[in-house]
Design a protein around this nucleic acid. Structure first.
Lengths: 206, 206, 206, 206
DNA sequence: TATGAATGAGGGTTCATTCAT
DNA sequence: CATGAATGAACCCTCATTCAT
């Protein structure tokens, strides 16, 4: 199913790891190919054998993020929280735990790229959207699983998208202030909204 | 109060205008100083006479955004909408009207810079935060003006920050999908939350 | 005789002082006009009113060194040492005392310029030569004053030039090693040569 | 032992040759990297692939001078002169023959750099010192080979250093006057000193 | 396939100098 | 005479990428 772990595979992985890390830490434009080469311990020829361009490498990084969405982002949430509504907040809490030790540096790697390259790299934008769509789909699934605890007339797609909005918008502000407060504020208001929705869901006519 | 419109002032303005536009359109790192110079019709010595570095130019651009917050962003909203709660949504609607004709390209210039340079430019981060703080302060003022139409136990600072979160997070998704839907979704959920809050406010014990 | 101490004279002096110091500390090519302006607290227009170019400023600096040769370099030596032969070594000792506290940084300001600009600035070379000639003339005068203590067939011009050679060559090596040893070595050998010459002078036929 | 003459080696040599020549002709600061590139027929990326900076290129130039000290400077002297004392003056004569046709332009490439960059480039100074030390070591070796023709109590290290002092100081003056006279004067006085020393050596107690 | 030198356009910035006020 | 913005060539260096071995 997967290719054998040839040296080339190792090289490819090392490049992808280095590129993903550096794009996250420094941004796409601020990361030179030579830095990726150095950090991956690879020569330009090798990189350009495997990836036709820096843009193609970015595409591969985003594809990898798509693959990692479940094992890295969603599975841990589902493992430690079973209640579907609580999974929403466990997910938001997970980002807080990731970035709080860094004083909210770095931010969401997908969100960063969304704002940096969405306009300039038309071929990349769909890959960003795919990551967002996948993320939202998990939240949407949980909202579905909440069943009639949530109001029947609730637009669950909209709400799932709003959860991502809260995460990205909250993280942006936390990063700008180097403080959890802005993130926590938005999450707290979302919680308040969910409390209201759950009340309405519970109050449905029998 | 303001410096006289000497040639230098003109040059400074032309540089700031060009830089602000290009940073918005292409991002900070993707914008070369030479492009700014060409678009402003200025030569390098002039720019570096007025701004000690590209980073200092970025700082000046952000200070200008702070100055423009009221006349460009908030005053039009307050002019066309008098109800304080409706002003919140008029503000969000204004962004929609700005970016919808562009298929949600560009995005918020402050938000873009927040994700691109907050970590790499420590001296810039406070200027981004100042823009966010100023934006939030207007929303907070409107929430105050809503008085007891909103619940007494509502944390209005949190809610004001969440309005910015909705704008930034919604715009990010709209940009990634080139569609208003994601933005509208988050605004719509915020409206639903406000409806709930107004209901609770109205239901206060008399 | 001298112009009244107008502000312009002050400005001129401040510029010359700053330029002389910076050319000495950093060299001519490594010193930017803007640095001179900053250190002198002067605007470009002012400098270029008084000196038509950076090269002309260099010429003025060298003329000033010529003026300062007696009061700064030779007078102190003549004041503290009366024996003409000992004045030669007091002069060499004076350079040692100037540069030893600096670990032999900086070196001779004239010698530095001699090697840096003699070829590229034909109009400057004579000014350097004039400084060297003036310096040698003092030594030559002392050798004359030594009268028949030195051999009659000694070429005193040659010997005076050699004293400068010892100073410049010794300082160059001291600067390269950050140590007095190389300078002292050459001076010590010169002393040995003088001892021989004085012996021969004393042994002249009666 | 030496790397194969790959294209890279050729490029490296072309760059080093051009840089050494231009640094000698114009000085370090007055030589632009672009001039080196043009003269070497190389583009910037190539140079910076082989040398991390202009300063590193200067270091390599000085290392090359160290390598060339024997084949270019000392071997010819030893080839044409066998008497060790005469080798000292053959060496000084060789410099005269090199620079006399140029009217004593250019000067000693090491000496020039000593005065231009010793203070500003701490990593370069030891390389200059190494060149001087190597030069002096040859002279010192010849003085040793002169055995008891020279006085037993002579400090031969000091004298060897003084030979370099004479060369550098004499060349500096020759360059400033565009004339051999100043150089010849110092060499002549050194000859006179050597004559004295040889006399004293010969007069040792039997 | 791996290597690392070569490519050459472009990066941000400083240079000495001029000129309008 | 002072001011400081304007000039534009040149500064050193890095970029993403290609290519010969």
């Amino acid at each position: 199913m997967s290719p054998p772990p040839t040296p080339a595979t190792d090289t490819r992985s090392r490049i992808l790891d280095a590129a993903a890390r550096l794009f996250h830490e420094q941004g796409f434009n601020a990361t030179g190919v030579s830095t990726i080469l150095r950090e991956a311990g690879v020569n330009p020829g090798s990189l350009y054998n495997l990836f036709p361009s820096k843009d193609a490498l970015l595409a591969a990084v985003l594809e990898r993020y798509t693959e990692l969405l479940h094992p890295v982002v969603m599975a841990p949430v589902e493992a430690r929280t079973s209640d579907p509504v609580e999974r929403v907040f466990a997910l938001l809490q997970q980002y807080r735990e990731w970035f709080s030790p860094l004083d909210f540096r770095l931010g969401c790697p997908i969100g960063n790229l969304a704002l940096e390259v969405a306009d300039s790299h038309p071929e990349i934008r769909p890959l960003i959207k795919a990551n967002f769509d996948g993320w939202i789909a998990y939240v949407r699934k949980w909202l579905d699983e909440a069943g009639d605890r949530l109001p029947a007339d609730l637009d669950r797609d909209q709400l799932a998208g709003t959860v991502l909005t809260i995460m990205e918008g909250g993280l942006m502000q936390a990063r700008s202030s180097r403080s959890a407060a802005a993130y926590d504020a938005s999450v707290s208001q979302l919680r308040s909204y969910f409390d209201f929705l759950l009340t309405r869901g519970a109050a449905r006519p029998g």
